[in-house]
């Protein structure tokens, strides 16, 4: 199977069909990267489609000498997500409950007797982690998503986000701290136990 850059060159020579394997190869990564920022999977799909359309329309501006195709693609995905969030207002809207659903059903019961191992974040709490992820600063979220969802190396994250390697490590560390704080605020008794120490909050405020 030809590499990304070879396929891009084929598309630029007029072989439109060569774009299909590029979409196949990166769709899952892009959808999940964007899903870290937007709560609805449907929106994530739509914004990913937009990402690929933009990539196609501007394919001539991709310069393989400056980096990998995937790096360039994630840059576009990040911009699409940011533009979307900007349109919606900074915070994503809270999810609506279904007609016959109560808030108690939505929030998992994490009392000590309900969850035998309170230190463990169970599968049903994934929604809480995802929700917390949308609440932390965009830069930290992007770094975390590229690391945990896209399994990029630190250097690749640095290239994608156009920051230094040191910045990436700091972003990931602070992102995790912010996430820990979000989770303990949303869920004071469960998940992560008592709220995060004051020290983290102070460090958190320092922007990069």
């Amino acid at each position: 199977m030809p590499g990304d850059e070879t396929l891009v060159a084929l598309v630029l020579k007029g072989d439109t069909q060569a774009f299909a394997p590029l979409v196949e190869r990166h769709q899952r990564g892009v959808v999940n990267f964007i899903h870290a920022s937007v709560r609805s999977a449907e929106d994530a799909n739509d914004l990913s489609q937009e990402t690929f359309m933009r990539a196609y329309a501007h394919l001539r501006t991709f310069n393989p000498d400056l980096g990998k195709f995937s790096t360039w693609l994630y840059q576009i995905a990040r911009n699409v997500a940011r533009t979307h969030l900007g349109k919606e207002g900074r915070r994503p809207p809270t999810e609506d409950l279904y007609e016959d659903e109560t808030i108690e059903q939505r929030i998992p019961d994490t009392r000590r007797d309900a969850a035998p191992d309170a230190t463990l974040i169970a599968g049903e709490d994934e929604a809480l982690v995802r929700s917390a992820l949308t609440q932390i600063p965009e830069k930290m979220r992007a770094a975390l998503a590229l690391r945990y969802f896209n399994h990029l190396e630190y250097q690749e994250i640095a290239d994608t986000m156009q920051v230094t390697l040191g910045n990436v490590k700091t972003l990931i560390h602070r992102g995790k701290a912010a996430l820990a704080r979000e989770l303990s605020v949303e869920h004071p008794t469960g998940l992560l136990g008592a709220s995060a120490p004051q020290e983290i909050r102070g460090r958190e405020l320092l922007s990069l």
Binding site: E24, R28, V31, Q49, T119, I121
Partner: peptide, 27 residues
């Protein structure tokens, strides 16, 4: 411990699958 639990929580998040007609729609 808290940082490691966040790490574990992030690692455990199940990735979603793109819509089945994703590529076809774009093409």
């Amino acid at each position: 411990a808290r940082m490691r639990r966040v790490d574990a929580a992030l690692t455990r998040i199940v990735l979603i699958e793109p819509a089945p007609d994703f590529t076809a729609t774009i093409m």
